[in-house]
Design a protein around this nucleic acid. Structure first.
Lengths: 154, 154
DNA sequence: TTGACAAGTTAGGCTCTCCTAACTATATTA
DNA sequence: TAATATAGTTAGGAGAGCCTAACTTGTCAA
């Protein structure tokens, strides 16, 4: 029985997601890379790894490579998924630039529960479905935003 | 010159917003009410008030009523506004129930910068504009969600 | 006016997350 | 293989944000 209901702090979620992204195929990564990815000292990574090991989310032994456990992978995938959904929404519908979208997704992913995330996913899916009306709406919205910007500049 | 660029922690943003909502017309509230509103001990409120006074956002004297300064009002209004925008989006477009929307807005409001918030506002405005196509889209999306739910239950 | 209760503050402590500096283990390469 | 560079850990400390318990101030009613 994998422990699933222990809630992670957003900080630990960040570490988990970073490991997930860095580990890739072989499911292996290093402390140093995590530190760089998140922008934190190596000492902080050691601390986080201990906490994640405690929760059975990473395989961690001092001085060894780091990998995710099965439940770690599940939890990380969920977070990464949320991230992607948010990013898609920001980019494809709100038409925000990629960097802003990436950053905002990072922060917001910790704040939204599954209810909203699922709805948001549905919305992105729905709007993306090839359908003349919806396609038009997105285009019109872009125009709407541009016009608004112009109006402000005056 | 009002100091505007000091970033607030999400915790302090919560206190500020609570004061804003509680203070109402007379711009006056009490420590106890803030504590209850946020769900935190009175001692924690005292701490937060000191921090907010430090940043010139509240008028705070021990054992007195609490009010927002002018810059406090501005900052709080901005946060409350973000909250409203998010809530509208969740309710009116994603068609999420009010309680979920309220809660999610609370958490997400700290995570989104002005870029995204503005776009989101534009989007809500845009979709709300009386326009047959957009109105239809929202209706269709609701149906889409319901169908999806049904499909899952099988 | 005074005493009891409510509101507010202080003190002290806990957890989380981060840091730097110093140390240890591992890897590289001459 | 020994010296050195790189990666990882430990120790110690800071600050934010929260708590409880005890104390102080303020208020209201007998």
């Amino acid at each position: 029985m994998t422990i699933k209901n222990e809630k992670l702090s957003s900080s630990l979620e960040d570490y988990l997601e970073a490991i997930y992204n860095l580990a890739g195929e072989n499911n292996i990564t290093r402390s140093k890379d995590i530190a760089e990815d998140i922008g934190v000292s190596r000492a902080s990574v050691t601390g986080a790894l201990r906490a994640l090991k405690e929760k059975n989310l990473v395989n961690y032994k001092p001085y060894n490579y780091i990998s995710l456990t099965e439940s770690g992978k599940l939890a990380a995938a969920e977070i990464a998924n949320k991230h992607e959904i948010l990013k898609s929404f920001f980019i494809e519908i709100l038409d925000v630039n990629k960097d802003v979208a990436q950053q905002a997704a990072c922060k917001a992913e910790h704040a939204l529960g599954s209810d909203i995330t699922e709805r948001l996913l549905s919305f992105v899916e729905f709007m993306g479905k090839s359908n003349r009306k919806r396609y038009d709406i997105i285009k019109e919205f872009k125009t709407f935003c541009k016009d608004k910007k112009k109006a402000e500049k005056k």
